[in-house]
Amino acid sequence: MSTRALTGPAPAGLRFHPLRDSATMLRRNLKRMLRYPSMTVTLVGMPVVFLLLFVYVLGGTLGAGLGGPVPGGGAGGRAAYANYVAPAIILMTVTATVQGTAISIAMDMTEGIITRFRTMHIARVSVLTGHVLGSLIQAVFSLAVVIGVALLVGFRPTAGLGAWLATAGFLVAVTFALIWLSVALGQVSKSVETASNLPMPLVLLPFLGSGFVPTDSMPAGLRWFAEYQPFTPIIETLRGLLTDKPIGNNAWIALAWCAVIALGGYLWSKRLFNRESSH
C-alpha cells in the first residue's frame, strides 16, 4: 500500500451529510418500530385505556361536577366530560410516545451499534434526529388513532378546518419539544428500565394541571402548581382550539414553554451524546 493511499481521501469526501444521514437513521428507526410493534401498540393503548376509563367509569360523576357553562355545550354529565378530558388524553398520547422515544434511545445506547456510529464518519446528530423524526411520525399515527377513538366515545369538537390545522401544528410543536427532552432522558438512563420510568412525571403532569378537572377545584398549593406548570397552558390551548373556548394568552405561554423545552432538551441531548464513555 502506498503512502498516498494512506494520507486519506480528498477533502470533498470529508463533507458531512446531515440530511441524508438523518433520513437513513429515520428509515432505520421506522423499520425497528415495525419489527417491534408491541411497543407502538402499548404506547397507543395507554391513552385509549385512560380515555375509556375517564369517560365511562368516572365521566358521569366528573362531568356533573364540572358545573357552569359546559365546554363544547354537551348534554352535561358523561358527554360534557368527554369533551373536557379529550385534550388531556391527546396530550397524554404525546407523553406516551415520548416515553417510547426514551426507551428506544436507551435500547440503542445499551447496544453496541451506537459505538459503531461514533467511530464512523457520519453527521453525529443524525443518530438523534433519526429518533426524533421517527417518534414524530409515531406520534402523528398515535394521535390519529386516539382522536378517532375519542370521537367514537362522544368527543364533539367544534373546530373548523383552520382550528384543526392549528391544532395539528400546535401538537407537532409540543411533541417535538417533548421528544427532545425524552432523547436526553433516554441517554441519561443507565438501563432501558430507568428510561421507561424517567419520563413518568410527563405522564402524570396532565393530572396535576387542568387536564382532568378544573384547577380551581384543587387545594391552594396544588392549584398554584397546576396553574403555572407547562402542561396547563398546553391543555388550555388545545381545549380552546378544539372546543371554541377562549384561549387567552395560553397559546403564547404554551409555545414559549415548547421553545424552552425543545432547546433545553436539544442542548442537553447533544452534550450527553458527545460525552465520552467513562470506560
Partner: peptide, 15 residues
C-alpha cells in the same frame, strides 16, 4: 473516514 472498528461487543442492530 479511514478506519473501521469491530469491538468486543457486537455492534449490530438486532432488530
Amino acid at each position: 473516514a479511514a478506519i473501521g472498528v469491530t469491538g468486543q461487543f457486537s455492534a449490530v442492530d438486532n432488530l
